[in-house]
Structures are given as structure tokens and as C-alpha cells.
């Protein structure tokens, strides 16, 4: 039986290149998550606002994000903005825009959920103990909200990392694209490389997302 192409990975700098590709994917998701958390906190608070119009607007925004595949959004931003506005966005910038657009909606909804899940009695008890509103938020409400939010936002990180695999479709050279290049370059010497290389990519994604997911599950249980 012919080799299954694991050896191809250890030729030259192939494995380092693969990890470099993975880093591109992780970098895009980390930047997007950071932006999503910051903006999502604001959007989440606005989602609990008393203004019906504001709530309806954010509701529509959330539904659009929930329904449209991220791939479609990537295409619309990357190819559409060039045509309509004449912008020449770099692929990576488009990816960050799309993932942030998606992340802010998801994060906002999580913040909204966490805020309304704090029972009214918490506010009332704080007031009965003589805390002023800022103190109530700082010492009572925020610590509880953050505890509920952290595991959920960690889950969002893994979802983003998994979704970044789509960015190869708009020409970003991330881990899958590097894998394809390695396979193509070694087609003659190792025709079966596709098996080994794609299996390794599969495992790499698993090795990144699984521990993060476990951490989220652990925190969720511990802080519940």
C-alpha cells in the first residue's frame, strides 16, 4: 500500500505553513470576536431599551444575521461593495466585517438574554440594602451577567473559528488553502497526500475548538 501522505507534511516547511494558515483563520476570528464583544455589549443593552422602534430594528438585524448564511454575506461584502461603492476591500477586511456583523448580533442577543434573566428581586434587594443604582449595577447585576456571558461568548469563539474555514472562498490563504497547495505541489511524488493532509487539517481544527468548548462547558457548570 502506498503512503497516505503524512510524510509530505514533514518535508521542508510544509507543516509550519499549515500552522501559519491556521493562524490566519484564528487571527480573523479573534479580531472579530473582540470587536463583537465590545459592540455586542452596547447592542445588547440597546436591545432591552424601552423604545419599540429600536427593539424592532435590532430584532430585524438579528433575524437577517440568523437567516443569511455567512458565505452569502462574505460574497455580498467582498464582491458587492466593489461594484456598488467602488471600494476595494482586502479579503481579510471583508471577512472581519462579516464576522463582526454576525458576532455583534449574536453577542447582543446573549447580553440581552443575560440582562433579562437577572430576576427583579436582585434589583429590589439591592435597593432595600441601600445601594444606589450605580452600586447595584457594579456589585450585583454586572458580576452575575458576566458570569452568564463568559461561557456563552467562549462558545461564540469556537463557532467563529469553525466558520473562518469559509474565507478560502474569497481568496484568503488559510489552512485549507495551504493544505490544497501542499497536496498539489506533491501530486507526483505522493499522489495520496490528500488523505493524510486533510486528516491532519481535520484534527487541527478539532484540537483548537475542542479545548475551548470544554472550557466553556466547565465554566457554565461551575458558574451556573
Amino acid at each position: 500500500m502506498q503512503s497516505l501522505g503524512i510524510d509530505v507534511l514533514f518535508k521542508g516547511t510544509n507543516f509550519i505553513r499549515l500552522l501559519g494558515g491556521l493562524w490566519v483563520a484564528v487571527r480573523i476570528s479573534l479580531i472579530s470576536v473582540a470587536l463583537s464583544i465590545l459592540l455586542g455589549l452596547v447592542v445588547g443593552v440597546l436591545m432591552t431599551s424601552r423604545s419599540k422602534i429600536l427593539r424592532a430594528l435590532f430584532r430585524i438585524y438579528l433575524e437577517i444575521v440568523r437567516i443569511m448564511p455567512q458565505m452569502v454575506l462574505l460574497f455580498v461584502v467582498y464582491f458587492g461593495t466593489t461594484r456598488v461603492f467602488g471600494w476595494n476591500l482586502a479579503a481579510e477586511t471583508s471577512a472581519v466585517i462579516v464576522f463582526t456583523f454576525w458576532g455583534v448580533a449574536e453577542m447582543g442577543d446573549l447580553v440581552r438574554g443575560a440582562l433579562i434573566s437577572i430576576p427583579k428581586i436582585q434589583y429590589e434587594s439591592a435597593e432595600a440594602l441601600g445601594l444606589v443604582p450605580t452600586q447595584t449595577y457594579r456589585y450585583v447585576i454586572l458580576p452575575q451577567t458576566v458570569r452568564r456571558l463568559i461561557p456563552l461568548s467562549i462558545n461564540l469563539v469556537t463557532r467563529m473559528i469553525k466558520t473562518t474555514s469559509l474565507v478560502m472562498m474569497i481568496g484568503i490563504v488559510e489552512v485549507l488553502k495551504v493544505a490544497q497547495q501542499i497536496i498539489e505541489a506533491n501530486r507526483r511524488v505522493s499522489p495520496n497526500a490528500a488523505f493524510g493532509v486533510f486528516a491532519v487539517v481535520f484534527l487541527l481544527y478539532f484540537l483548537i475548538c475542542w479545548p475551548i468548548g470544554r472550557l466553556a462547558a466547565y465554566l457554565e457548570k461551575r458558574w451556573a
Binding site: 469553525k162 474555514s165 478560502m168 490528500a194 486528516a199 481535520f202
Partner: peptide, 17 residues
């Protein structure tokens, strides 16, 4: 914990090998 795209690549490009 893995993206569908990677799973499909594995099924479609790796398994034939």
C-alpha cells in the same frame, strides 16, 4: 468541533485515496 467544509473535503477528496 470541526467545520463542515473540512468534513466535506475529507469525504470528497481524502476518502477516494
Amino acid at each position: 468541533n470541526t467545520p463542515l467544509l473540512v468534513q466535506l473535503f475529507f469525504l470528497y477528496f481524502a476518502l477516494p485515496k
